[in-house]
Design a protein around this nucleic acid. Sequence first.
DNA 1: ACCGCATGTCACTGAACTGTAACAACAATG
DNA 2: CATTGTTGTTACAGTTCAGTGACATGCGGT
Lengths: 239, 239
Amino acid sequence: MSATILIVEDEDDVAVLLRYNLEAEGFRVATAASGDEAVERIRDGVPDLILLDWMLPGLSGIELCRRWRAREETARTPIIMITARGEEEERVRGLATGADDYVVKPFSIPELLARINALLRRSSPQLVTAVLKAGDLELDRTSHRVRRGNREVHVGPTEYRLLEYLMRHPGRVYSREQLLDGVWGNEVYVDERTVDVHVGRLRKAINRGRDTDPIRTVRGAGYAFDERFAAAAANVVAD
Amino acid sequence: MSATILIVEDEDDVAVLLRYNLEAEGFRVATAASGDEAVERIRDGVPDLILLDWMLPGLSGIELCRRWRAREETARTPIIMITARGEEEERVRGLATGADDYVVKPFSIPELLARINALLRRSSPQLVTAVLKAGDLELDRTSHRVRRGNREVHVGPTEYRLLEYLMRHPGRVYSREQLLDGVWGNEVYVDERTVDVHVGRLRKAINRGRDTDPIRTVRGAGYAFDERFAAAAANVVAD
DNA sequence: ACCGCATGTCACTGAACTGTAACAACAATG
DNA sequence: CATTGTTGTTACAGTTCAGTGACATGCGGT
């Protein structure tokens, strides 16, 4: 059901960070610390997407990419290359060799996740839900629209990401810190109270004229998308 | 339903790149790395179009082209030759030998796709959707014309490709980066803000004297062709 | 060479968005 | 009920972002 991602990265720190974040997103993760190991992993099973560090000891990223593109089973597997800042020509060669996208180190996790999801949506639509639904609330990632009932509501970019993040795991409570990491990005330093303000803005936008609020405040802990919202709203509709 | 394209190309990089992009467009793809292999592939089945590298080991492109033109089944199959920069006489000879079009390496993918579609439209019209419609907006790929209502509007080449690209997937939001890749080509380095300017020009052209804008700006994300534009315009007409 | 068209970049403007602080409202505790 | 800590809300100032007109360049045709 969930997508498998292969991480090919020799720097342990980065690999661990990636694994952690991807698993938190619900992906299954395999890792390889070298080109040879990557080839072996692929033998075990073709992943749905590959994260490929361009600078590898031994078999280079380019070489790996070329090989995979040439083989029938992996020819259409999306590849995201990871390059260091400034390796401009590498990037060009990478895309020419068949990589589908790239991120530059140091990269932000939310951005990487967005790119991963975008590519998966293209290559394996069934693995990625393009539309998140809960009760009468709907978030369409393809068209970037949010609807409540049949009325479209406008939310700003940050509120959009926040809602998307919360809706991904209904019921799960996120601390303000987690939300800052997940929605704003790891390198951004923002006051925790700012989360409150954006939650407020999001609520105002999606609850305009309604009396049920899909966002639950957990005092002392953080916020969650109310997992009972879907059911409750369904009853209202049924009434 | 979809057209089959045979790629005859000995350089692996190029062949893979082509296969990938053509498959992404929905074409079925067969490849041959040499003239002899190409002859064999043709025996398996005549493709709807041939991409032919002019510089081949063994049987040359010219020779292949001549043979195919002489045979009944392949006489009318469109052939696009791929030549390296500077092979001026080759190009002339190619066209004389019966190639229908040519691209010069390195070529831009969008341009190649445009040429492929143009030729297919001529030879196998049933395989290619010629007219994209949405509401009172119409883009005719055969005549390269755009109409709004019953008035023809003039748009520049870039704006034309941009509109075509956006109309292909109504509702879908494309980042400026994606638009640069898809409309301008992967190897072109252009400022992202240039997209804004062209969107502006496109809007000016197609909205002249109207108040509905089919192009939606998604702040922080990119642009999309408004999927509800068709419906909205239909209502207006119905009123 | 000249002209017109298309293109990409820049600078400027207005609008949208963002983060912070201040204060009001609220819940929990004794 | 008073106190304290937490959350909701609003206003505001700073920042970012998209729209637009102007301009330089390049290209093809005459």
